[in-house]
Amino acid sequence: MSTTATAVGVSPKRGIWGGGNEPLKASYGKLMMWFFLLSDIFTFAAFLIAYAAIRVSYPGYLGPEDAFIGSNEYWPVPELVFDAIPFFHGVHIPLAFVGLMTFILIMSSVTMVLAVEAGHRNDRKDVVKWLLWTILGGITFLSCQAWEWTHFIHGTDGGSVLTFVNKMGQVVTETVYGANLFINEYGPAAFAQLFFFITGFHGFHVTIGVFLLFLAFYQAAVGVYERRGHYEMVEKIGLYWHFVDLVWVFVFTFFYLI
């Protein structure tokens, strides 16, 4: 933001080659955060596009929705896989829980942008307040994800009867419950593998984000940024946090809706 105090003081004595200049009117830290995020966009895009490529390489489930059973022969319908929410055991409520997670992450992004806005105004009290809300949102999201993973790994009551080559090299037909990287009751092995890698990589980003937010919260609360003269660190961590939200928007569409 050009309207705020310049983050890097440029000493007139140092001149153009002495460092501390801002080529794109963004400080070094902010610029590097943007380029890091660009590289991260490519990483996540590679994951999601690989998901799409592997998905079209399998036949989709074409039968009626209420008669859906998981099989490693075809790709499952996501809304019929992700249909559980806590405390409602065995009830079919498609996508509600993941919708709640999306809502939580978007709201935490909103509180983050409010923290950044408060940082521009040098308002320590507001920064601390909104960062705390953001941390709360991040932790809630991670908890939801932990629950979802647990449910996904343990599976449904009925499981699915699958024919597959087991680890001993024999062709067996047996009931499979839940999911691991080798076999799962919902679809081909690649379905669970991609679920674990994509949502896991995103969850890893959220975890790092929560640590960074806590750092910013602590430093803002004890007045580090006030002494430094600007709240740019909140802005940089904010960029990262919005990126995490941005990725989730795509994961939500490609993994849960399509």
Partner: peptide, 26 residues
């Protein structure tokens, strides 16, 4: 989804307010 991404990048991340070369390099 792309519409939402636009809102997040432009309004939340203030990409639109950055210098044009930075905007295009992203």
């Amino acid at each position: 989804t792309i519409w939402k991404a636009k809102y997040i990048m432009m309004e939340f991340m203030h990409l639109g307010e950055e210098a044009k070369p930075l905007f295009y390099s992203i």
